[in-house]
Amino acid sequence: MKKYLILLVCLLIMIPAFVTANGAQEEKEDGKPVVGLIMKSLANEFFMAMEEGAKAYAEEDGTFELMTMGMNSETDFDSQVNAVDSLITQGVDLIVLAPADSAGMVAPVKRAIDAGVTVINFDVTLDKEALKAAGLPEEFLFVGPDNTDGAEMVGNYLGETLGSGGKVFIIEGNPGADNAKQRKNGFMKAVENHNLELLASNTAHWETEEANTLMTNLLTKHPDVQGVMCANDSMALGVVRALEAAGRSDVQVVGFDNIPAVKDLIMNDKMLATVHMDGAEMAILAFNAGFEILDGKRENLGWVQSPLILADKDFFK
C-alpha cells in the first residue's frame, strides 16, 4: 500500500514536467521557431530593459516564440548552465546567450550545439582558448558592442574638452571581467591620443558606494585632477556625488551604459557624457543573425557589431 502511495506521489510530481515538455513540442508544430534568450542579472537595469524590448519585439514580429531567462546576479554562472541545459531538453531551435563566465559557458554551449541547437553568443564574448579546446571555431559568431571603441570614443570626447595635458583618473570595473578590461584599454587609448596625464587608475568593482569612497580618497591624493573616466554609469553616480560633496564643479566625468539616472546629471552639467548602448537592439540583432543561420544564409562565424552612441547633452535634447 505504502509503495503504491509513493509511486503515485512520484507520478504526480512528474506531471508538470510532461506538461512543459509537451508545451514546447506543440509550439514547434506551429512551425514557429522557439528562441531562448538567456541574459545575465535582471537586477541590472540594462538587462531589464533588454528583456522588455525583446519581448515587445517578439510580440510585434510574431514569427517566433520567445522564452527569456535572467539570473540572480552577474556572476550566477551555475544557474546559467542549468538554463542552457533545460532549453536543450525543451528542444528550442535557437539559444541567444550573454555568458556570465566567458570560459565556463563554453562547455554548455558545446552541449547545445551537439544536440542540434543553434547558439548565438552576444553581449560578452566567449573565451577563444576555451572555444578552441572544446573543438569549436575561435571565430564563433559574436553579436555585441566594441567596448574598447566605445570607451575610446567617450574618452576622446573628454580629451577634447580638457585639451592636451589634462589630468585624469580611470575608475575601473571588476578586474576579472572582459568588458572591464576592454573599457580600460579604450580609456588608455584616449589618454594616449590626447596626451592626457593619468594620475590614477583603480577599481571600484562597478559599485556606486565604492566609487564614491575611492573618488573622495583619490581627490585627497590628487586635488589637481580635471577629468574622470568611469567604466560604468553606476560608478559615475558615486563619483559625481563625491565631487558634489567636495564642492568641485570643475571636474568633468564620463561614464558608460546610459542608465536612466545619468540623464539629469548630463543635462545639469554634472556629467559630461556617457556611452549609449541599446540592449534590446543588441538582442534583436542577435535574433536576426540566428534566423539567418537557421535559414542557411549565414555561417556561425564573425562579429556583428551592435552600435554604441556617444550620449552628451545634444543626445538627450
Binding site: L42, A43, N44, E45, M48, S234, L237, R241, E244, A245, I259, P260, A261, D264
Partner: peptide, 22 residues
C-alpha cells in the same frame, strides 16, 4: 527590493535632502 523597484534605481531626491547629505 528587485520586485518592488522592477530593478530600477530611484533618483531625483529633493535638493535639501541631498544637501544635508553633504
Amino acid at each position: 527590493a528587485l520586485q518592488i523597484s522592477q530593478s530600477r534605481t530611484i533618483f531625483n531626491f529633493p535638493k535639501a535632502f541631498n544637501d544635508f547629505g553633504t
